[in-house]
Computed example of a mutant assay.
Amino acid sequence: MLAIVCPGQGAQKPGFLAPWLELPGAREALASMSEAGEVDLETHGTTSDADTIRDTAVAQPLLVAAGILAADALAPSAGDAAGSLSAGSFASAPPAQLLAGHSVGELTAAALAGVLSPADAMRLVSVRSRAMAAAAAEEPTSMAAVVGGVREEVLAAIEAAGLTAANINSAAQVVAAGSVEGIAQLGENPPARARVIPLQVAGAFHTPYMEGAREQLAAFAPQLSPSAPLVPLVSNAGGEVIEDGARYLDLIVRQVASPVDWQACMAVFADRGVTGILEVNPAGTLTGLAKRELKGVALQNLNSPEDLEAARAFVAEHDGPVA
């Protein structure tokens, strides 16, 4: 059984889209998504530097578009062994039994699942990214990964510093978020047997500091027409498996100001009997978490067109019914 997963903000790298532009239809696909997302994806995905693509308003649309391109390329057009991209339009469900994404990656997964059209996913991420950037600019906030320690002690230390556990990434990693002073306090007084690693982010995402962004998304969401997923979509909201498009919109709006529970998503993979996890471009973060959390599950990264042959073989090997 195959799960396809989509990474979140921070996974982007300078120039990471350049190899994909060699595929037939890639520039047209990117241009279509650029128009919908109101951002120059080709420039930012090929020549913009690390600081430029770290900007929330750039990084989030770039990641969603990159994941859509990579997943679209998994299924080559008839007679074209190299694959041909279709300007962000999926004719059928992707070759997976489960889909999930981390934070903004959940918008990528929603497009792959058919809950949102690629154009609507880009419209939504455009509003989301700008709203989150604006909320982050209101006051200095930050995030830090807490690696190791005992979960109860880690959560207690985060709370004592006045912070929020914004990402539950795995049994060994929680991301704390909140005021700059609180992050500094946590770093000075880390939980026993744990490391606190400050993250280079613009603000305290997935916390009440993002309430203004949540309100903007809630106002925009009625303009979208979501559909029921063609493939089960596992939500960051406690691993809920979404069966209804309206429910997806409700949860993705709440997500910007609520914790991302990726550990719960991985628990669903285990419960459903997933045998293989493929992460779409830019891949490596989520398969890295799965390597430690889901022992025995096969992993595959799809980072460039050179990975397509291996990725298609991986899909064929793990294609199977949902438990």
Rank of each mutant, 00 (worst) to 15 (best):
C6V: 01
P7I: 03
G8S: 08
F16I: 05
P19C: 12
L23V: 05
P24H: 07
P24Q: 08
A26E: 00
A29G: 11
A36F: 02
D40P: 01
D40C: 05
L41Y: 00
E42T: 00
E42R: 01
T43F: 14
T47M: 05
S48A: 15
D49L: 04
D49S: 11
A50S: 12
A50M: 11
A50V: 12
D55R: 15
A57Y: 07
V58N: 03
P61Q: 04
A65V: 00
A66F: 05
I68F: 02
I68W: 02
A70V: 01
D80S: 14
G83I: 01
S84Q: 12
S86D: 07
P95Y: 04
P95V: 08
L98I: 05
V104P: 00
G105A: 07
A110C: 10
G114P: 04
D120I: 01
V125S: 02
V125F: 03
S129M: 02
R130F: 11
A135L: 10
E138K: 15
E139H: 13
T141K: 04
V147C: 05
R151E: 15
E153I: 02
E153R: 15
L155C: 08
E159N: 08
A160Y: 10
G162L: 13
S170V: 00
A171C: 02
A171Y: 06
Q173I: 06
Q173T: 09
V180C: 12
A192K: 14
R195D: 10
L199K: 02
A204P: 08
A204H: 04
Y209C: 09
A213I: 11
L224C: 05
P226E: 11
P229V: 03
A237T: 11
G239C: 10
E240I: 04
V241G: 09
D244N: 15
Y248G: 04
I252T: 13
S258I: 03
P259N: 10
P259K: 08
V260P: 01
D261N: 15
W262Q: 08
C265G: 05
F269W: 12
R272K: 13
V280N: 06
P282D: 03
T285D: 12
T287R: 11
A290G: 08
L294H: 04
K295Q: 13
K295D: 12
G296P: 02
G296R: 15
G296F: 00
V297Q: 07
A298G: 07
A298D: 14
Q300P: 06
L302S: 07
N303Y: 00
D307Y: 07
A310Y: 06
G320T: 09
G320D: 14
P321H: 14
